[in-house]
Each structure stands twice: as structure tokens, then as C-alpha cells.
Simulated assay, not measured.
Amino acid sequence: MKSLSIGQLATAAGVNLETVRYYERIRLMPAPARTANGHRAYEEGHIRRLAFIRRARELGFSIEQIRALLALAQPSRTSCAEVREVARAHLDDVRSKLADLARLEGLLAGTISRCSDDSAPSCPVLDMLKTPGRA
């Protein structure tokens, strides 16, 4: 396969060009080979890795969790038990966020239900936002 430019890689993996540079800078993506004139030359493996990272980010995994998953995805390191622990920690985070969102939904729904359609001098939503620690 012929090498890909950074723009072609970004397009193939469905990410922004700056995202590729950022992932290289934080060493989530391996540095590619360089052409004679210094341009990056990516391969098929870069597309797969970048797509993996993009999908993991879409699912809310942190950079450090993705780093761990990538390490565990290496043929010599594959460990379903270790992957399960990373996924379990992420699931706990997701469940915590869902609980927070459910509380927020209840708070907002209750506050909005107290709003009237007239031009009252006081607005429950604005009052809620002005009051610290009301969650």
C-alpha cells in the first residue's frame, strides 16, 4: 500500500487534521515515517489505530484509558481480564454521570414547571442559577 499524507489519514479515520497532530504529540499515535522532503508518511496500521482511538473517545474513554486499552490490544499483551477492569471503571463513571443527569433533569423540570407565561418580575430558572449550591 502506498503511504498516506496526514490529510488522507485524517479523512480516512474521520478526524480533524489537528487531532492527528495532537495524538502524535501526546504519543497516543506512533510517529510515522517521513518522506525525503520531511512529510509524514502514514500506513494502514495508522488508520486502524486512529479509528480505534476515535471510537473510544466517542464512547467517552479518557486518554489514559485509551492508552491502557491500546497497550492491552497488542498481541503479546491481550488480557480480557485487564480490559474488563478498564471497561468496568469507565462503566462506573458512565453510571455516575447518568445519576447526575437524572438529578439535573428533576431539578430543571421542577424549576421550569414553576415558570409562568407572563412577564413576572421573578423567574425560577434565573433564581436557581443565581443561588450557589442548589443542585
Rank of each mutant, 00 (worst) to 15 (best):
V86S: 05
R88D: 08
V86F: 06
R77S: 09
P32C: 04
K97N: 08
Y23Q: 00
E85H: 06
T78D: 06
V15L: 06
R49E: 10
A81C: 03
G60E: 03
A71I: 02
A33V: 06
S113I: 11
P132M: 14
A99V: 07
G7T: 08
E18P: 01
L107D: 12
G60N: 08
A73P: 04
D92V: 09
T131E: 15
A36N: 11
T78G: 05
Q8C: 05
A68Y: 02
D100I: 03
A135R: 12
G45H: 11
D117W: 11
A99C: 09
R134T: 13
D117Y: 14
K97Q: 14
I63H: 01
E82Q: 12
I26C: 06
E82M: 10
C123V: 10
C80W: 07
C80D: 06
A13R: 00
F52K: 02
L104Q: 10
G14H: 02
A68F: 03
R48E: 07
S113V: 06
S122N: 09
D117Q: 14
L98N: 11
C115E: 14
S3K: 07
L4D: 04
I63F: 01
K130Y: 11
S116P: 04
P75S: 06
R34K: 10
Q65D: 15
G106P: 00
S76R: 11
L98A: 14
D92C: 05
A73E: 09
A99L: 09
R21W: 03
A31H: 02
D93P: 02
S76Q: 08
A135Q: 10
M128Q: 15
D93H: 09
K97L: 09
R25Q: 08
P121L: 11
G38A: 06
P121S: 14
P132I: 07
A41K: 01
S96I: 04
Q8T: 08
V20L: 01
R27L: 03
H39T: 11
S119C: 14
A81I: 07
G60M: 04
R67I: 02
L28T: 02
D100T: 07
S122W: 12
A87M: 12
E24A: 01
I6Y: 02
E105M: 13
L59S: 07
I6M: 03
R40Q: 02
L4R: 03
A36V: 08
R40L: 00
A99S: 14
I66F: 00
R103M: 15
A51I: 02
G38Y: 02
T78Y: 15
D93V: 04
L50M: 05
D127E: 15
T111R: 12
H90I: 10
A10W: 01
H39L: 12
G38W: 00
Y23S: 00
A41L: 05
N16L: 10
L4M: 12
I66C: 04
A31C: 06
L9V: 03
A87E: 09
A102L: 15
T78Q: 05
